[in-house]
Simulated scan of single mutants.
Amino acid sequence: MMVVIADDLTGAAEIGGLALKYGLMAEITTTVNLHTNADLLIIDTDTRSLSKTAAKAVITEICAGLKALQPTLLFKKIDSVLRGHVLAEIQLQQELLQLPKALIVPANPGLGRTVVNSTYLLNGRPLHQSSFSQDPEFPVYSSGITELLQAKDGDIQVLPHHAPQPETGIVVAEVESSTDLVAWSKKLDAGTLVAGAAEFFATILEARNMRPVIMEKSSATLQPPALMICGSAFHKSRAFVKKIEQDGFPVSYMPAVLDTTGDAQLFQHWMEDTLQQLKQEGKVSIAVHPQMEDDRAHALNIRNKMAEAAAFIAGQATLHEILIEGGSTAAAVMRKLGIDRLYPTMALAPGVTRMRVQGNEELHLTLKPGSYEWPPLDLFPLMQ
């Protein structure tokens, strides 16, 4: 059995989509399931949204379970642009699992995300010059790998694959192309903790002689009633919400004042209005109001309120589909709904995965990272 530890739920779902591509039965959980029958167990720790101290506590608990599971492959799925407590978690995991080396491969060259000369580039430009500089929880102020990982002197080495590799310590891989990913995949051994983005995980599967299965191209058959939750503050998300509203998709904006006040009556009124839209149209999207602030404190408040709204709506209507963008928002919604296990059923687009909910055959969750794109409309008929 293979195990992936993901620091965010949409990252876990992205790996679940890759499992489908390679013909693997995957299970996404929030704990180490010692009795799973899956080929690939994907554990969502949601540590990216926690404090560093809380994240370390979760990693400690997960590692204790991993010792009993003894997977044939262990991969730590991190954010491809290194947001979160990446280095602190890897250092702790190394210590607990007694692994002398760690290799971090954050690049996703297929998405224009590369590491060159110790610098992270997005489509050839320094990362901090992109919209990631406006991330409300982990704003990117530098494109240097050392700064992105908040590393101290001696914590890491940033190396190309052709350079001599150290026997101990942490290496961050320089990657310009998929060819570099293949070269790095050949350098893994039992003493190395492997961490990286989804494209490197796929490369590792290929290195283990796994190949994509042939799957018929088909559109997603999403069944109403459907609730879409747009909890990301990325400009792409806001532009997407504006576009679908212009195209006739019902959108219910969370009142802007709710990010600074605890007006319970206003919140209740908004949730009831949203529920009525869902009943009338069969679908509705709840979204961040354009006037809401994007900083960390507001982001936490917004996702908690969206999770509460989702729980209210799910309690009043039989939902067949919940579509969520943003890993922290998705994790908050799952906690509110008491969902702790998912089974990927369809990869709709890179990073966008539809999953069956354990214990509720009628309900599917579709998750997407905030910085990724939703599928084209012709493959996603619910959006029309």
Rank of each mutant, 00 (worst) to 15 (best):
P376V: 08
T203G: 05
L149V: 01
S252H: 09
A287G: 02
A197T: 01
T329G: 15
A307R: 14
L74C: 05
V175Q: 10
D294E: 11
G191T: 03
V357A: 05
I214V: 14
V352A: 12
S133I: 10
A307F: 14
D44P: 03
R335L: 09
I204K: 05
T146S: 10
P106H: 06
S131T: 15
D294P: 06
G326D: 07
V116A: 10
E174T: 08
E373W: 10
T36I: 05
V140C: 14
L50E: 10
M292E: 04
G11H: 01
F201P: 01
K52A: 05
I90W: 01
G17V: 00
I104L: 01
T119M: 15
H235S: 09
T353P: 11
L122N: 13
K283S: 08
I145N: 03
I104M: 03
A307D: 10
W270N: 12
D44I: 02
K67D: 04
A183Q: 15
D39H: 09
Q246G: 04
F380N: 03
G326K: 08
A88Q: 00
M254V: 15
M306D: 09
T192Y: 01
Q150P: 06
L99S: 09
K368M: 15
L122D: 12
I286T: 12
T31A: 04
L300T: 12
P250G: 14
Q265G: 09
I104Y: 01
E245R: 03
I78D: 01
T261Q: 14
K52Q: 12
L342G: 00
P225D: 06
M383S: 05
S371G: 13
Y253W: 13
I78L: 08
T179W: 07
G154C: 00
V81A: 01
G338D: 08
F312M: 13
E321P: 07
L205W: 02
L9C: 09
D295C: 12
P136A: 14
S237I: 00
